[in-house]
Design a protein around this nucleic acid. Structure first.
Lengths: 189, 189
DNA sequence: TGCATTTGCCTAAGAGTTTTAGGCAAACTA
DNA sequence: TAGTTTGCCTAAAACTCTTAGGCAAATGCA
């Protein structure tokens, strides 16, 4: 029988592409097998089960996103760094809606702790150094930024901001302005 | 054959409870039938299909949430109104994680336009009247608030903020302080 | 009250996804 | 070149979703 050359790696990559095409929810072991022209059972040598596949796609997306962010942020500081970071996030969600949804998958604590999610948090902390926040406030700010970027991408992906003015692009820019302003004038406890 | 007294209403309610117990993703026509001690096919007289069921649960949650918010906001203004509104959202996500997830379901545009989601937006606009923002900025602010609340509840539900200090409760309060401050000092275009 | 209609839940059945177990041949390895 | 590993296969069971058609309980009407 002709060997197709499956591997966990290739399955995850193809799964990510599939997610972008049909939505992360619709990613299925069967569909993936179909795309490789292979029987479903064959995938189970490379992936534990359906949940495992999805988790791997999520981890892949988080990694990819962290790499892009790190590149974008390098050599920048302050608002420049903030917008670069935020735009990577949003651009990624536009270019790869399925992977972005995957990156929002609920991971169990250990998996999450070992994921590139921690790099994201570290980068945000690095960006916040340009704003000079005292320690406990820094964590609050990281959470605010994470929530906002995450939430915006999610709502925008769900079509929440289409069909009304101002267009989403402009709101996004304005929101980044507002967040920058907020970080520069963070209220005292 | 004993009639159980199914109805779309009861199915949706039970579906919402099921979602809170096992997660919105795990809500299934089969499981719901099992809970009613009824054959699966019987549900199809009351609900078009699985997607229809989920959409109805989402609409139900949005409605419930809008009712709670309206109550909470009534008679309040400014920061008072803002925190009341935001807390309803977060408390709801804690008490009913499945319904909260349902409320984040992607709806098609017409369904969304007819949903209680528009009441949410209107309430946010009403709250913003206390902050005196010029018109285009108001929309930006609504989107910022929506994204942040949405994102925070989502990340918190995914366990993103557990196991690190300050605890999530405190960050939430501080974030509301910060957003209030931001709205009072909204940067000019 | 008796009859017709509607309605609620049923059985049957087909299609799709997930997962496990065991087999055969191709590809490495010595 | 023989032995081992590995990759993909077939088979089969369990589950979910969905449609079609049937019977009996509930309801409405004379």
């Amino acid at each position: 029988m002709a060997r197709v050359g499956l591997s966990t790696e290739r399955l995850v990559r193809a799964g990510a592409e599939l997610a972008d095409e049909v939505g992360f929810e619709q990613v299925t072991v069967s569909e993936l097998a179909r795309r490789f022209g292979v029987k479903v059972a064959s995938l189970y040598s490379h992936v534990k089960n359906s949940q495992d596949l999805k988790t791997r796609i999520a981890l892949f997306a988080l990694e990819e996103l962290a790499d892009l962010s790190a590149d974008a942020v390098a050599g920048r500081a302050g608002k420049d760094a903030l917008t670069a970071f935020a735009n990577v996030y949003r651009d990624y969600a536009h270019a790869h809606p399925g992977r972005a949804a995957a990156a929002r998958l609920r991971l169990d604590p250990e998996t999450a702790a070992a994921s590139a999610g921690v790099r994201h948090a570290q980068m945000m902390r690095a960006i916040l150094r340009g704003y000079d926040l005292p320690e406990p406030d820094q964590t609050d700010a990281v959470r605010l930024l994470g929530s906002t970027f995450h939430g915006y991408a999610s709502l925008e992906g769900a079509g929440g901001f289409s069909h009304s003015s101002p267009d989403s692009e402009e709101s996004w820019t304005r929101i980044l302005d507002a967040l920058d302003s907020l970080l520069r004038n963070w209220p005292a406890r």
